[in-house]
Amino acid sequence: MRKTIEVAGMLGWHDIRQAYRRSAIGQFWITLGMAVQITAMGIVFGSIFGAQGDDYVPFLAISIVIWTFMTETLKDGARAFISAESLIKQLPLDPAVHVLRVIWKNLVTFGHNFVLLPFVLIIFAVQLNASIFLFLPALILLIGNLIWMVALIGLASARFRDLPLIVASVLTIAFFVTPVMWFPELLPPQTAHFLLGYNPLYHLLQIVRLPLLGGVPTSANWLLSGAFLALGVALTIWAYSKFSKKIPFWL
């Protein structure tokens, strides 16, 4: 297992290096790109939402950084095995290598974006409190969920090649129906229940972002995120016991 993680870390890191290798500021384009995106969206949607400006920009910045991490991981995850075809057909690597490679690459990217957040919090004088300590357990719960989702979607995508495209479309829709750039409180209670109650991405987003905004996630947020993890892991273990040996034949 230690070797699996070491190899996955090395490959994931090289994915990042590879993308930015001959540029002057290298992977800090990730950070810069995100800063530009947050500024632009902050100005446009901040003025649309008017008076809420001071609350809105930190909310938007944190939401976008977390949401980007979640969705980019899932999009890369759908191609986890497909894009590793040449490796899979030449080396008997543990399938976990390809899953953790995607996770690590996106975690590094997330780290580059995350450095923006302290500045935003200071500029907009967000009041943090003890709930900030919930951030780390929440992040771990999120990563746990992403691992099984990548493993499962990646496996299914190796067999059904429409799936990466479907995942991308679904995530585009999810961006609008999940409160990433709008406050969940703006929805009427009934719509909220219908739209958010069973949206796992919403609950995962809430547990990670609220501690950074001085808020506290509800117990429903925690429970659903945990239940999603338990169910997902069980499903993934079942799928791998049945199909993992078929991956090289599907590619």
Binding site: E6, V7, L11, H14, R17, R21, S86, L91
Partner: peptide, 21 residues
């Protein structure tokens, strides 16, 4: 296998070596 053309020779020794276990 696993040789990346943009990476240096030294980096490639590590990539390839780790892939070999």
């Amino acid at each position: 296998l696993g040789i990346e053309s943009e990476a240096t020779g030294r980096e490639n020794i590590f990539i390839r070596g780790m892939l070999l276990g």
